[in-house]
């Protein structure tokens, strides 16, 4: 995959993901619970103690209305980035996304926020430089983060006896917010759980080497990755993870091109 195509795909996918995150945040705010739990009353003192900003700025930032402004910011700048991707727009999108996480005491949705931020920083770099030899650093940054995310997740599981014997998988499924998944976890045999667990561990490890594959093989791996992330969404409702990780994938295709056909680059 060429640099231009990979950059364009990442730009569109991450813009779309950020737009969705904005819509979702707005709906969360309208549902009310978020405004009560992550309220100014609860967070203002902590934010004042930890943000190196004038107190009156922090008061404004901690205001409940800021949650709505940040949601609109994600939606608006996400939409602009989708239509007119540029270094400036992606800088603003990354800033708004990081600010939204800070307003939520560091994170709204764990790892998906981090992957979104890593992709936004990478795509910003790729638009910042005119020369492809510098701009490609942005896509390589994204692909390295994606590969590390798979590799570290696989390694962490490999260290856990509960993952190796399959009990971890059923344990996590039994804690799903969805009733059908909790019921399913009770019906998975230990042998099946063990096979599935090893499947996940091997798959996550194997992905670290995916850039070494040629395009056709890599497409197949990508297809399996889509199923893997969709399964995570289905089991745990992790929709944000799905879009953040998929948005990073074109960078792997680009890295594969660089590794397998260095003369073309």
């Amino acid at each position: 995959m060429s640099f231009a195509l990979a950059r364009g795909l990442v730009a569109h996918l991450i813009s779309f993901a950020v737009f969705l995150q904005g819509v979702e945040l707005l709906k969360m705010v309208h549902q009310g619970a978020v405004l009560k739990i992550w309220s100014r009353e609860n967070l203002e003192d902590e934010l004042k103690a930890n943000l190196p900003l004038p107190p009156e700025w922090v008061t404004y930032f901690a205001d409940d209305a800021m949650l709505t402004y940040l949601a609109y910011g994600l939606m608006g700048f996400g939409a602009i980035a989708f239509v007119h991707p540029s270094a400036l727009v992606f800088f603003i999108v990354a800033l708004v996304q990081i600010l939204a996480c800070v307003r939520f005491r560091g994170s709204i949705n764990g790892g998906s926020d981090s992957m979104t931020a890593m992709v936004l920083i990478g795509i910003w770099i790729s638009y910042l430089f005119k020369k492809e030899s510098f701009a490609c650093a942005g896509l390589i940054w994204i692909s390295v983060n994606l590969l590390i995310s798979y590799g570290r997740a696989g390694l962490a599981k490999l260290k856990q006896p509960e993952w190796k014997d399959g009990s971890a998988l059923t344990s996590f499924l039994s804690q799903s917010f969805y009733e059908d998944v909790r019921n399913l976890s009770a019906n998975i045999s230990p042998e099946t759980a063990k096979k599935l667990s090893w499947g996940v561990i091997v798959f996550e490890f194997a992905l670290v080497f995916s850039p070494l594959l040629a395009d056709s093989s890599l497409s197949l791996v990508f297809f399996v990755a889509v199923i893997f992330h969709f399964a995570n969404y289905w089991a745990f409702g992790l929709n944000r993870f799905f879009w953040a990780w998929i948005a990073a994938w074109p960078a792997i295709f680009y890295l594969s091109e660089v590794i397998n056909h260095p003369a073309i680059q």
């Binding site: 930890n50 943000l51 005491r105 560091g106 983060n145």
Partner: peptide, 8 residues
């Protein structure tokens, strides 16, 4: 900790 999103 507030910036942990950029230190995954």
């Amino acid at each position: 900790e507030l910036l942990r999103v950029i230190f995954p």
